[in-house]
Write a protein that binds this DNA or RNA. Structure first.
Length: 493
RNA sequence: GCUCCCGUAGUGUAGCCCGGCCAAUCAUUUCGGCCUCUCGAGCCGAAGACCCGGGUUCAAAUCCCGGCGGGAGCACCA
Protein backbone atom coordinates (compact mmCIF):
# COMPACT_ATOMS: atom_id res chain seq x y z
CA UNK A 1 0.00 0.00 0.00
CA UNK A 2 2.66 2.43 1.04
CA UNK A 3 4.79 1.28 -1.79
CA UNK A 4 2.01 2.12 -4.18
CA UNK A 5 1.59 5.52 -2.66
CA UNK A 6 5.19 6.32 -3.27
CA UNK A 7 4.99 5.14 -6.84
CA UNK A 8 1.91 7.19 -7.40
CA UNK A 9 3.64 10.28 -6.13
CA UNK A 10 6.67 9.64 -8.23
CA UNK A 11 4.58 9.58 -11.35
CA UNK A 12 2.74 12.73 -10.47
CA UNK A 13 5.97 14.60 -10.16
CA UNK A 14 6.89 13.69 -13.68
CA UNK A 15 3.64 15.01 -15.08
CA UNK A 16 4.32 18.05 -17.11
CA UNK A 17 2.37 21.16 -16.62
CA UNK A 18 1.08 23.40 -19.31
CA UNK A 19 3.12 26.59 -19.67
CA UNK A 20 1.62 29.68 -18.07
CA UNK A 21 -1.05 31.49 -20.02
CA UNK A 22 -0.24 35.00 -21.13
CA UNK A 23 -2.54 37.72 -19.78
CA UNK A 24 -4.05 35.30 -17.31
CA UNK A 25 -5.10 36.12 -13.79
CA UNK A 26 -6.31 33.64 -11.22
CA UNK A 27 -10.06 33.57 -11.11
CA UNK A 28 -10.43 35.47 -14.33
CA UNK A 29 -9.78 32.91 -17.01
CA UNK A 30 -12.61 31.62 -19.16
CA UNK A 31 -12.06 28.92 -21.77
CA UNK A 32 -14.34 27.01 -24.04
CA UNK A 33 -14.45 23.81 -26.03
CA UNK A 34 -16.61 24.24 -29.13
CA UNK A 35 -17.27 20.97 -30.96
CA UNK A 36 -19.64 20.76 -33.87
CA UNK A 37 -22.16 18.00 -33.17
CA UNK A 38 -21.51 16.25 -36.42
CA UNK A 39 -19.59 13.16 -35.36
CA UNK A 40 -17.81 11.30 -32.64
CA UNK A 41 -14.98 12.94 -30.78
CA UNK A 42 -11.43 11.81 -31.45
CA UNK A 43 -8.12 12.27 -29.73
CA UNK A 44 -7.59 15.59 -31.51
CA UNK A 45 -10.73 16.89 -29.85
CA UNK A 46 -9.45 15.49 -26.59
CA UNK A 47 -6.33 17.60 -26.92
CA UNK A 48 -8.34 20.78 -27.43
CA UNK A 49 -10.77 19.89 -24.68
CA UNK A 50 -8.05 19.06 -22.17
CA UNK A 51 -6.07 22.19 -22.94
CA UNK A 52 -9.18 24.31 -22.44
CA UNK A 53 -10.23 22.42 -19.37
CA UNK A 54 -6.82 22.33 -17.74
CA UNK A 55 -6.19 26.01 -18.17
CA UNK A 56 -9.55 26.84 -16.67
CA UNK A 57 -8.71 24.63 -13.69
CA UNK A 58 -5.19 25.93 -13.40
CA UNK A 59 -6.45 29.48 -12.99
CA UNK A 60 -9.63 28.69 -11.06
CA UNK A 61 -11.54 29.84 -14.06
CA UNK A 62 -14.60 28.80 -15.97
CA UNK A 63 -14.81 26.16 -18.65
CA UNK A 64 -17.64 26.29 -21.16
CA UNK A 65 -18.89 23.56 -23.44
CA UNK A 66 -20.36 25.15 -26.52
CA UNK A 67 -21.95 23.32 -29.39
CA UNK A 68 -21.17 25.06 -32.62
CA UNK A 69 -24.23 23.84 -34.43
CA UNK A 70 -24.77 26.43 -37.08
CA UNK A 71 -24.84 24.27 -40.14
CA UNK A 72 -28.13 22.38 -39.88
CA UNK A 73 -27.26 20.17 -42.80
CA UNK A 74 -24.30 18.74 -40.89
CA UNK A 75 -25.45 18.47 -37.33
CA UNK A 76 -27.19 15.47 -35.90
CA UNK A 77 -29.13 15.28 -32.72
CA UNK A 78 -27.49 12.13 -31.43
CA UNK A 79 -24.04 13.72 -31.42
CA UNK A 80 -24.81 16.35 -28.81
CA UNK A 81 -25.19 13.59 -26.28
CA UNK A 82 -22.56 11.31 -27.73
CA UNK A 83 -19.99 14.08 -27.44
CA UNK A 84 -20.99 14.84 -23.91
CA UNK A 85 -20.66 11.19 -23.00
CA UNK A 86 -17.20 11.06 -24.47
CA UNK A 87 -16.14 14.15 -22.56
CA UNK A 88 -17.48 12.73 -19.34
CA UNK A 89 -15.61 9.54 -19.98
CA UNK A 90 -12.45 11.60 -20.27
CA UNK A 91 -13.16 13.02 -16.87
CA UNK A 92 -13.86 16.50 -18.15
CA UNK A 93 -16.49 18.55 -16.38
CA UNK A 94 -17.82 21.82 -17.66
CA UNK A 95 -19.19 24.77 -15.76
CA UNK A 96 -21.55 25.95 -18.45
CA UNK A 97 -23.06 24.47 -21.55
CA UNK A 98 -24.95 26.02 -24.43
CA UNK A 99 -25.59 25.87 -28.13
CA UNK A 100 -24.50 28.57 -30.50
CA UNK A 101 -27.73 28.03 -32.40
CA UNK A 102 -29.66 29.31 -29.39
CA UNK A 103 -28.09 32.70 -29.85
CA UNK A 104 -29.12 33.33 -33.43
CA UNK A 105 -31.47 36.20 -32.57
CA UNK A 106 -28.50 38.03 -31.06
CA UNK A 107 -26.44 37.25 -34.15
CA UNK A 108 -29.15 38.68 -36.36
CA UNK A 109 -29.12 41.87 -34.36
CA UNK A 110 -25.40 42.26 -34.81
CA UNK A 111 -25.69 41.42 -38.49
CA UNK A 112 -28.21 44.18 -39.00
CA UNK A 113 -25.94 46.61 -37.23
CA UNK A 114 -23.06 45.65 -39.46
CA UNK A 115 -25.23 46.14 -42.50
CA UNK A 116 -26.69 49.45 -41.39
CA UNK A 117 -23.29 50.85 -40.61
CA UNK A 118 -22.07 49.90 -44.04
CA UNK A 119 -19.61 47.31 -42.84
CA UNK A 120 -21.25 44.40 -44.58
CA UNK A 121 -23.39 43.86 -47.63
CA UNK A 122 -25.75 41.41 -49.21
CA UNK A 123 -24.06 39.82 -52.18
CA UNK A 124 -25.91 37.98 -54.90
CA UNK A 125 -22.84 36.83 -56.80
CA UNK A 126 -22.64 33.14 -57.49
CA UNK A 127 -20.15 31.09 -55.56
CA UNK A 128 -17.90 30.92 -58.59
CA UNK A 129 -18.01 34.67 -59.04
CA UNK A 130 -17.08 35.23 -55.45
CA UNK A 131 -14.20 32.86 -55.77
CA UNK A 132 -12.95 34.46 -58.96
CA UNK A 133 -13.18 37.97 -57.59
CA UNK A 134 -11.29 36.91 -54.53
CA UNK A 135 -8.55 35.46 -56.61
CA UNK A 136 -8.41 38.58 -58.75
CA UNK A 137 -8.73 40.90 -55.76
CA UNK A 138 -11.72 42.61 -57.33
CA UNK A 139 -14.69 44.11 -55.60
CA UNK A 140 -18.06 43.12 -56.96
CA UNK A 141 -20.85 45.53 -57.75
CA UNK A 142 -22.89 44.57 -54.70
CA UNK A 143 -20.26 45.70 -52.29
CA UNK A 144 -20.91 49.36 -52.91
CA UNK A 145 -24.23 49.46 -54.66
CA UNK A 146 -26.34 46.79 -53.07
CA UNK A 147 -29.67 48.11 -51.94
CA UNK A 148 -30.64 44.89 -50.32
CA UNK A 149 -31.20 44.99 -46.61
CA UNK A 150 -31.42 42.37 -43.94
CA UNK A 151 -35.15 42.06 -44.34
CA UNK A 152 -34.74 41.41 -48.04
CA UNK A 153 -31.99 38.92 -47.39
CA UNK A 154 -33.99 36.75 -45.02
CA UNK A 155 -36.68 36.31 -47.63
CA UNK A 156 -34.32 35.07 -50.28
CA UNK A 157 -33.68 31.49 -51.22
CA UNK A 158 -30.77 29.28 -50.39
CA UNK A 159 -27.88 30.05 -52.72
CA UNK A 160 -29.42 33.30 -53.90
CA UNK A 161 -27.51 35.63 -51.63
CA UNK A 162 -25.06 35.79 -48.75
CA UNK A 163 -24.05 38.48 -46.33
CA UNK A 164 -20.42 39.45 -46.65
CA UNK A 165 -18.08 41.47 -44.50
CA UNK A 166 -16.62 44.55 -46.11
CA UNK A 167 -13.05 43.53 -45.60
CA UNK A 168 -10.30 44.30 -48.03
CA UNK A 169 -10.36 42.65 -51.42
CA UNK A 170 -6.76 43.73 -51.94
CA UNK A 171 -5.51 42.16 -48.74
CA UNK A 172 -2.70 39.66 -48.93
CA UNK A 173 -4.66 37.62 -46.49
CA UNK A 174 -7.29 35.87 -48.56
CA UNK A 175 -9.44 35.41 -45.49
CA UNK A 176 -9.93 39.18 -45.40
CA UNK A 177 -11.30 39.37 -48.92
CA UNK A 178 -14.90 39.94 -47.89
CA UNK A 179 -15.61 36.67 -46.13
CA UNK A 180 -19.14 35.34 -46.03
CA UNK A 181 -20.75 35.95 -42.65
CA UNK A 182 -24.25 34.58 -43.17
CA UNK A 183 -25.83 32.22 -45.63
CA UNK A 184 -29.22 30.68 -46.11
CA UNK A 185 -29.71 26.98 -45.42
CA UNK A 186 -33.15 25.50 -45.83
CA UNK A 187 -32.30 22.20 -44.21
CA UNK A 188 -34.11 21.78 -40.88
CA UNK A 189 -32.00 21.99 -37.77
CA UNK A 190 -31.92 19.01 -35.38
CA UNK A 191 -32.87 21.22 -32.45
CA UNK A 192 -34.68 24.18 -33.95
CA UNK A 193 -36.36 22.57 -36.89
CA UNK A 194 -37.42 25.23 -39.36
CA UNK A 195 -37.22 28.14 -36.97
CA UNK A 196 -34.14 29.60 -38.68
CA UNK A 197 -33.06 29.71 -42.28
CA UNK A 198 -30.22 32.18 -42.06
CA UNK A 199 -27.09 30.82 -40.47
CA UNK A 200 -23.80 32.47 -39.48
CA UNK A 201 -20.50 31.08 -40.72
CA UNK A 202 -17.57 30.18 -38.52
CA UNK A 203 -15.90 33.55 -39.00
CA UNK A 204 -18.90 35.31 -37.58
CA UNK A 205 -20.16 33.16 -34.76
CA UNK A 206 -16.70 32.10 -33.61
CA UNK A 207 -15.61 35.63 -32.85
CA UNK A 208 -18.99 36.80 -31.60
CA UNK A 209 -19.60 33.86 -29.30
CA UNK A 210 -16.13 33.94 -27.77
CA UNK A 211 -16.56 37.58 -27.01
CA UNK A 212 -20.14 37.55 -25.75
CA UNK A 213 -19.75 34.46 -23.60
CA UNK A 214 -16.84 36.04 -21.76
CA UNK A 215 -14.16 33.70 -23.00
CA UNK A 216 -10.77 35.18 -22.23
CA UNK A 217 -8.51 32.55 -23.81
CA UNK A 218 -9.97 30.80 -26.81
CA UNK A 219 -7.79 28.13 -28.41
CA UNK A 220 -8.13 26.85 -31.92
CA UNK A 221 -5.93 24.78 -34.11
CA UNK A 222 -3.41 26.25 -36.44
CA UNK A 223 -5.32 26.03 -39.68
CA UNK A 224 -7.43 28.98 -38.53
CA UNK A 225 -4.48 31.29 -38.15
CA UNK A 226 -5.24 33.29 -41.27
CA UNK A 227 -8.68 34.00 -39.89
CA UNK A 228 -7.34 35.80 -36.83
CA UNK A 229 -7.40 39.06 -38.72
CA UNK A 230 -11.06 38.61 -39.60
CA UNK A 231 -11.81 37.69 -36.01
CA UNK A 232 -10.39 40.86 -34.55
CA UNK A 233 -11.56 43.11 -37.36
CA UNK A 234 -15.12 41.92 -36.86
CA UNK A 235 -15.05 42.41 -33.12
CA UNK A 236 -13.68 45.89 -33.68
CA UNK A 237 -16.54 46.80 -35.99
CA UNK A 238 -19.06 45.41 -33.55
CA UNK A 239 -17.44 47.14 -30.62
CA UNK A 240 -17.04 43.86 -28.80
CA UNK A 241 -14.37 42.79 -26.35
CA UNK A 242 -11.39 40.99 -27.88
CA UNK A 243 -10.21 37.76 -26.24
CA UNK A 244 -6.62 36.50 -26.23
CA UNK A 245 -6.91 34.14 -29.13
CA UNK A 246 -4.33 31.35 -29.31
CA UNK A 247 -3.50 28.58 -31.71
CA UNK A 248 -1.77 25.23 -31.46
CA UNK A 249 -0.85 22.57 -33.94
CA UNK A 250 -3.12 19.70 -34.73
CA UNK A 251 -2.36 16.34 -33.23
CA UNK A 252 -1.07 13.85 -35.73
CA UNK A 253 -0.27 10.21 -35.09
CA UNK A 254 1.98 8.21 -37.34
CA UNK A 255 0.01 5.56 -39.21
CA UNK A 256 -3.25 6.52 -37.56
CA UNK A 257 -5.27 9.26 -39.23
CA UNK A 258 -7.08 11.46 -36.76
CA UNK A 259 -9.33 13.49 -39.00
CA UNK A 260 -12.88 12.50 -39.68
CA UNK A 261 -12.18 13.08 -43.32
CA UNK A 262 -9.78 10.15 -43.41
CA UNK A 263 -11.63 7.87 -41.02
CA UNK A 264 -15.04 8.07 -42.61
CA UNK A 265 -14.08 6.31 -45.85
CA UNK A 266 -12.65 3.40 -43.86
CA UNK A 267 -16.02 2.94 -42.23
CA UNK A 268 -18.02 3.48 -45.40
CA UNK A 269 -15.92 0.95 -47.25
CA UNK A 270 -16.21 -1.52 -44.41
CA UNK A 271 -12.48 -1.64 -43.81
CA UNK A 272 -12.95 -1.11 -40.12
CA UNK A 273 -15.78 -2.16 -37.83
CA UNK A 274 -17.12 1.31 -37.16
CA UNK A 275 -16.32 4.49 -35.26
CA UNK A 276 -15.32 2.41 -32.28
CA UNK A 277 -12.89 0.19 -34.11
CA UNK A 278 -9.92 -0.30 -31.78
CA UNK A 279 -7.52 0.74 -34.53
CA UNK A 280 -8.98 4.23 -34.65
CA UNK A 281 -8.05 7.28 -32.59
CA UNK A 282 -11.68 8.07 -31.91
CA UNK A 283 -12.37 8.23 -28.21
CA UNK A 284 -14.67 5.27 -28.61
CA UNK A 285 -12.05 3.31 -30.45
CA UNK A 286 -9.39 4.04 -27.86
CA UNK A 287 -11.73 3.13 -25.07
CA UNK A 288 -12.59 -0.17 -26.68
CA UNK A 289 -8.97 -0.90 -27.06
CA UNK A 290 -8.31 -0.38 -23.39
CA UNK A 291 -6.70 3.03 -23.41
CA UNK A 292 -7.70 4.79 -20.22
CA UNK A 293 -8.72 8.47 -19.96
CA UNK A 294 -5.80 9.38 -17.70
CA UNK A 295 -3.41 8.14 -20.34
CA UNK A 296 -5.10 10.17 -23.03
CA UNK A 297 -4.90 13.22 -20.87
CA UNK A 298 -1.23 12.83 -20.09
CA UNK A 299 -0.51 12.08 -23.71
CA UNK A 300 -2.29 15.03 -25.26
CA UNK A 301 -1.02 17.46 -22.67
CA UNK A 302 2.52 16.24 -23.26
CA UNK A 303 2.11 17.63 -26.76
CA UNK A 304 1.69 21.06 -25.27
CA UNK A 305 0.39 24.03 -27.19
CA UNK A 306 3.27 24.40 -29.56
CA UNK A 307 2.58 25.53 -33.10
CA UNK A 308 5.20 23.21 -34.57
CA UNK A 309 3.68 20.42 -36.62
CA UNK A 310 4.41 17.12 -34.99
CA UNK A 311 3.84 13.51 -35.87
CA UNK A 312 3.71 11.52 -32.67
CA UNK A 313 4.18 7.80 -32.36
CA UNK A 314 1.28 5.84 -30.92
CA UNK A 315 3.76 3.96 -28.76
CA UNK A 316 4.06 7.07 -26.63
CA UNK A 317 0.44 6.70 -25.66
CA UNK A 318 0.92 2.98 -25.17
CA UNK A 319 3.82 3.55 -22.81
CA UNK A 320 1.79 5.92 -20.65
CA UNK A 321 -1.20 3.61 -20.69
CA UNK A 322 0.90 0.58 -19.82
CA UNK A 323 2.32 2.24 -16.75
CA UNK A 324 -1.09 3.25 -15.50
CA UNK A 325 -2.57 -0.15 -16.19
CA UNK A 326 0.29 -2.11 -14.69
CA UNK A 327 -0.64 -1.21 -11.16
CA UNK A 328 -4.35 -1.85 -11.66
CA UNK A 329 -4.81 -4.76 -14.01
CA UNK A 330 -5.38 -8.26 -12.69
CA UNK A 331 -3.21 -10.97 -14.19
CA UNK A 332 -4.48 -14.06 -15.94
CA UNK A 333 -3.01 -16.77 -18.10
CA UNK A 334 -3.86 -16.88 -21.76
CA UNK A 335 -2.21 -19.33 -24.09
CA UNK A 336 -2.22 -18.25 -27.73
CA UNK A 337 -2.05 -21.07 -30.27
CA UNK A 338 -2.00 -23.74 -27.60
CA UNK A 339 0.17 -26.84 -27.83
CA UNK A 340 -0.65 -29.83 -25.66
CA UNK A 341 1.88 -31.05 -23.15
CA UNK A 342 1.41 -34.29 -21.22
CA UNK A 343 3.32 -34.04 -18.00
CA UNK A 344 3.96 -37.40 -16.41
CA UNK A 345 3.97 -37.23 -12.68
CA UNK A 346 2.02 -34.00 -12.38
CA UNK A 347 -0.80 -34.74 -10.00
CA UNK A 348 -4.26 -33.36 -10.29
CA UNK A 349 -4.61 -30.48 -7.89
CA UNK A 350 -5.74 -26.92 -7.43
CA UNK A 351 -3.23 -24.09 -7.14
CA UNK A 352 -3.63 -20.53 -6.02
CA UNK A 353 -2.15 -17.76 -8.10
CA UNK A 354 -1.85 -14.10 -7.22
CA UNK A 355 -3.91 -11.64 -9.21
CA UNK A 356 -1.04 -9.19 -9.16
CA UNK A 357 2.66 -9.70 -8.48
CA UNK A 358 3.15 -6.72 -6.17
CA UNK A 359 -0.22 -5.21 -5.34
CA UNK A 360 -2.41 -7.31 -3.07
CA UNK A 361 -5.47 -8.14 -5.12
CA UNK A 362 -6.12 -11.56 -3.71
CA UNK A 363 -5.76 -14.91 -5.38
CA UNK A 364 -7.48 -17.07 -7.93
CA UNK A 365 -7.66 -20.83 -8.03
CA UNK A 366 -6.62 -22.89 -11.01
CA UNK A 367 -7.05 -26.64 -11.51
CA UNK A 368 -4.23 -28.64 -13.01
CA UNK A 369 -3.72 -32.19 -14.09
CA UNK A 370 -1.20 -33.84 -16.28
CA UNK A 371 -2.58 -32.28 -19.43
CA UNK A 372 -1.27 -28.77 -19.95
CA UNK A 373 -1.26 -26.29 -22.81
CA UNK A 374 1.49 -23.84 -23.56
CA UNK A 375 1.93 -21.29 -26.35
CA UNK A 376 3.19 -22.55 -29.64
CA UNK A 377 5.89 -19.91 -29.74
CA UNK A 378 7.36 -21.32 -26.54
CA UNK A 379 6.81 -24.95 -27.51
CA UNK A 380 8.77 -24.45 -30.70
CA UNK A 381 11.85 -23.45 -28.77
CA UNK A 382 11.92 -26.59 -26.64
CA UNK A 383 14.52 -29.35 -27.02
CA UNK A 384 14.36 -32.88 -25.77
CA UNK A 385 16.10 -33.17 -22.43
CA UNK A 386 15.56 -29.52 -21.62
CA UNK A 387 13.85 -28.33 -18.46
CA UNK A 388 11.43 -25.43 -18.60
CA UNK A 389 9.11 -23.97 -16.00
CA UNK A 390 5.37 -23.68 -15.92
CA UNK A 391 5.08 -20.31 -14.27
CA UNK A 392 4.00 -20.44 -10.64
CA UNK A 393 3.68 -24.20 -10.87
CA UNK A 394 6.56 -26.54 -11.50
CA UNK A 395 9.41 -27.59 -13.75
CA UNK A 396 9.00 -29.94 -16.68
CA UNK A 397 11.64 -32.01 -18.41
CA UNK A 398 10.96 -32.45 -22.11
CA UNK A 399 10.96 -36.08 -23.18
CA UNK A 400 9.48 -36.19 -26.62
CA UNK A 401 8.39 -33.60 -29.15
CA UNK A 402 5.67 -34.27 -31.70
CA UNK A 403 2.19 -32.90 -32.27
CA UNK A 404 2.01 -33.09 -28.55
CA UNK A 405 4.86 -32.75 -26.17
CA UNK A 406 5.62 -35.42 -23.64
CA UNK A 407 7.30 -34.34 -20.47
CA UNK A 408 8.00 -35.32 -16.95
CA UNK A 409 7.44 -33.46 -13.73
CA UNK A 410 10.83 -32.14 -12.64
CA UNK A 411 10.31 -30.60 -9.23
CA UNK A 412 8.68 -27.53 -7.75
CA UNK A 413 11.68 -25.47 -6.83
CA UNK A 414 12.48 -22.53 -8.97
CA UNK A 415 15.59 -23.01 -11.01
CA UNK A 416 17.51 -19.91 -11.96
CA UNK A 417 17.75 -18.93 -15.56
CA UNK A 418 15.13 -21.12 -17.17
CA UNK A 419 12.19 -19.92 -19.22
CA UNK A 420 8.92 -19.47 -17.39
CA UNK A 421 5.89 -20.13 -19.48
CA UNK A 422 2.22 -19.39 -18.82
CA UNK A 423 -0.12 -22.32 -19.17
CA UNK A 424 -3.66 -23.61 -18.81
CA UNK A 425 -4.97 -27.05 -17.91
CA UNK A 426 -7.84 -29.11 -19.20
CA UNK A 427 -10.22 -26.69 -17.60
CA UNK A 428 -10.01 -23.61 -19.80
CA UNK A 429 -11.98 -21.24 -21.96
CA UNK A 430 -11.50 -20.90 -25.66
CA UNK A 431 -11.33 -17.31 -26.74
CA UNK A 432 -9.98 -14.96 -29.31
CA UNK A 433 -8.03 -11.80 -28.86
CA UNK A 434 -8.04 -9.03 -31.40
CA UNK A 435 -4.70 -7.36 -31.92
CA UNK A 436 -5.10 -3.90 -33.43
CA UNK A 437 -2.13 -2.40 -35.23
CA UNK A 438 -1.64 0.89 -36.99
CA UNK A 439 -4.32 1.08 -39.68
CA UNK A 440 -2.03 2.77 -42.17
CA UNK A 441 1.25 1.60 -43.56
CA UNK A 442 3.17 3.70 -46.07
CA UNK A 443 0.16 5.90 -46.50
CA UNK A 444 -2.22 3.10 -47.38
CA UNK A 445 -4.72 1.12 -45.40
CA UNK A 446 -3.13 -2.02 -44.03
CA UNK A 447 -5.50 -4.90 -44.61
CA UNK A 448 -3.64 -6.88 -41.97
CA UNK A 449 -3.98 -4.23 -39.32
CA UNK A 450 -6.29 -6.34 -37.22
CA UNK A 451 -4.98 -9.73 -36.25
CA UNK A 452 -7.08 -12.34 -34.53
CA UNK A 453 -5.31 -14.70 -32.19
CA UNK A 454 -7.10 -17.76 -30.89
CA UNK A 455 -6.14 -19.50 -27.73
CA UNK A 456 -7.10 -20.91 -24.36
CA UNK A 457 -7.52 -18.79 -21.31
CA UNK A 458 -7.74 -20.03 -17.77
CA UNK A 459 -11.32 -20.58 -16.70
CA UNK A 460 -11.23 -17.63 -14.32
CA UNK A 461 -11.55 -15.19 -17.19
CA UNK A 462 -15.25 -15.91 -16.97
CA UNK A 463 -15.39 -13.76 -13.86
CA UNK A 464 -14.08 -10.72 -15.71
CA UNK A 465 -16.67 -8.05 -16.29
CA UNK A 466 -17.36 -6.50 -19.64
CA UNK A 467 -14.94 -3.64 -20.21
CA UNK A 468 -12.40 -4.64 -17.60
CA UNK A 469 -8.78 -4.45 -18.62
CA UNK A 470 -6.53 -7.24 -17.47
CA UNK A 471 -3.06 -8.41 -18.26
CA UNK A 472 -2.56 -11.72 -19.93
CA UNK A 473 0.88 -12.49 -18.62
CA UNK A 474 3.67 -12.50 -21.15
CA UNK A 475 1.10 -11.56 -23.76
CA UNK A 476 -0.19 -8.06 -23.14
CA UNK A 477 -2.89 -5.87 -21.68
CA UNK A 478 -6.29 -6.88 -22.91
CA UNK A 479 -9.72 -5.38 -22.54
CA UNK A 480 -12.43 -7.96 -22.15
CA UNK A 481 -15.69 -7.72 -24.05
CA UNK A 482 -18.57 -9.94 -23.20
CA UNK A 483 -21.33 -9.96 -25.68
CA UNK A 484 -22.40 -13.34 -27.00
CA UNK A 485 -19.18 -14.87 -25.85
CA UNK A 486 -16.01 -13.59 -24.39
CA UNK A 487 -13.49 -11.75 -26.45
CA UNK A 488 -10.35 -9.79 -25.81
CA UNK A 489 -8.93 -6.71 -27.46
CA UNK A 490 -5.28 -6.14 -26.92
CA UNK A 491 -4.30 -2.62 -25.97
CA UNK A 492 -0.57 -3.23 -26.26
CA UNK A 493 2.13 -5.43 -24.76
C1' G B 1 1.54 30.51 -57.57
C1' C B 2 0.48 33.97 -53.54
C1' U B 3 0.11 34.72 -48.18
C1' C B 4 0.83 33.09 -43.31
C1' C B 5 2.86 29.68 -39.65
C1' C B 6 6.62 26.32 -38.05
C1' G B 7 11.96 24.11 -37.77
C1' U B 8 15.65 21.68 -30.25
C1' A B 9 18.21 13.96 -29.84
C1' G B 10 14.79 8.30 -33.74
C1' U B 11 9.95 10.55 -31.74
C1' G B 12 7.36 14.33 -28.81
C1' U B 13 8.50 18.35 -25.60
C1' A B 14 10.75 22.49 -22.02
C1' G B 15 13.70 26.72 -22.82
C1' C B 16 13.00 31.39 -27.18
C1' C B 17 8.75 36.86 -25.70
C1' C B 18 12.59 39.45 -21.11
C1' G B 19 20.50 37.03 -24.72
C1' G B 20 24.67 34.93 -20.04
C1' C B 21 22.72 30.46 -14.55
C1' C B 22 21.76 25.81 -21.51
C1' A B 23 28.74 21.75 -22.32
C1' A B 24 20.28 22.50 -23.12
C1' U B 25 14.62 19.91 -19.61
C1' C B 26 11.35 15.88 -19.25
C1' A B 27 9.09 11.67 -21.49
C1' U B 28 9.46 7.96 -25.00
C1' U B 29 12.96 4.92 -27.80
C1' U B 30 17.48 1.93 -28.04
C1' C B 31 21.45 -0.47 -25.32
C1' G B 32 23.65 -2.25 -20.69
C1' G B 33 23.03 -3.69 -15.39
C1' C B 34 19.90 -4.67 -10.93
C1' C B 35 15.19 -6.50 -9.22
C1' U B 36 11.01 -9.70 -10.25
C1' C B 37 8.33 -17.13 -10.74
C1' U B 38 5.47 -12.34 -16.97
C1' C B 39 8.48 -11.03 -22.80
C1' G B 40 4.90 -6.16 -17.88
C1' A B 41 6.19 -2.77 -14.09
C1' G B 42 10.11 -0.80 -10.94
C1' C B 43 15.38 0.89 -9.98
C1' C B 44 20.42 2.44 -11.84
C1' G B 45 23.39 3.86 -15.97
C1' A B 46 24.51 5.01 -21.12
C1' A B 47 23.45 6.73 -26.16
C1' G B 48 21.25 10.78 -28.73
C1' A B 49 19.48 17.54 -30.49
C1' C B 50 19.54 23.73 -30.91
C1' C B 51 18.00 23.19 -40.03
C1' C B 52 22.08 26.01 -42.82
C1' G B 53 24.77 30.70 -43.68
C1' G B 54 25.66 35.58 -42.34
C1' G B 55 25.01 39.73 -38.85
C1' U B 56 24.37 42.34 -33.86
C1' U B 57 26.81 41.54 -29.04
C1' C B 58 31.91 40.78 -24.33
C1' A B 59 28.08 36.74 -24.84
C1' A B 60 22.81 33.84 -29.28
C1' A B 61 18.85 27.80 -29.05
C1' U B 62 17.21 32.69 -27.64
C1' C B 63 17.58 39.16 -31.36
C1' C B 64 18.10 40.64 -36.99
C1' C B 65 18.72 39.26 -42.32
C1' G B 66 19.00 35.54 -46.11
C1' G B 67 18.59 30.52 -47.63
C1' C B 68 16.68 25.57 -47.19
C1' G B 69 12.96 22.26 -45.43
C1' G B 70 7.92 21.16 -43.58
C1' G B 71 2.75 22.58 -42.83
C1' A B 72 -1.68 25.45 -43.51
C1' G B 73 -5.07 28.75 -46.04
C1' C B 74 -6.76 30.70 -50.76
C1' A B 75 -15.31 27.23 -49.32
C1' C B 76 -22.00 30.07 -48.79
C1' C B 77 -17.11 23.48 -43.92
C1' A B 78 -15.53 24.18 -39.49
Amino acid sequence: MERLGIKEEGRKKEKRKLPPLPHAKKGEVVTRFPPEPNGYLHIGHAKAAFVDYEYARMYDGIFILRFDDTNPANERKEFYDAQKEDLKWLGIEWDKEYRTSDNLPKHYELAKKLLEEGNAYICTCSEEEIRRNRREMRECIHRNESELEWNDFIKMKEGEAVMRLKGDMKSNNTAMRDPVLFRIIEHPHPIHGKRFRVWPTYDFYGAVEDSLSGVTHPFRSKEYELRDEVYFYLLDLLGLRKPHLMEFSRLEIKGMPVSKRKIKPLIDEGKVMGWDDPRLPTLRGLRRRGIVPEAIKEFVLSQGISKAEAVVAFENLEAINRKILDGKARRYFFVPQPVKVIVRGLEEKEVELKYHPSVDMGKRKVKVGNVIYIPKSDAEKLQVGEIFRLKDLCNVMVEKIGNEIMGEFAGDELIDGIDKVQWVGEEHVEMEVLIPRLPFKNGEFDEKSLEIVRGYAEKNVEEIKHGEIVQFERFGFVRIERNEGIKGIMAHR
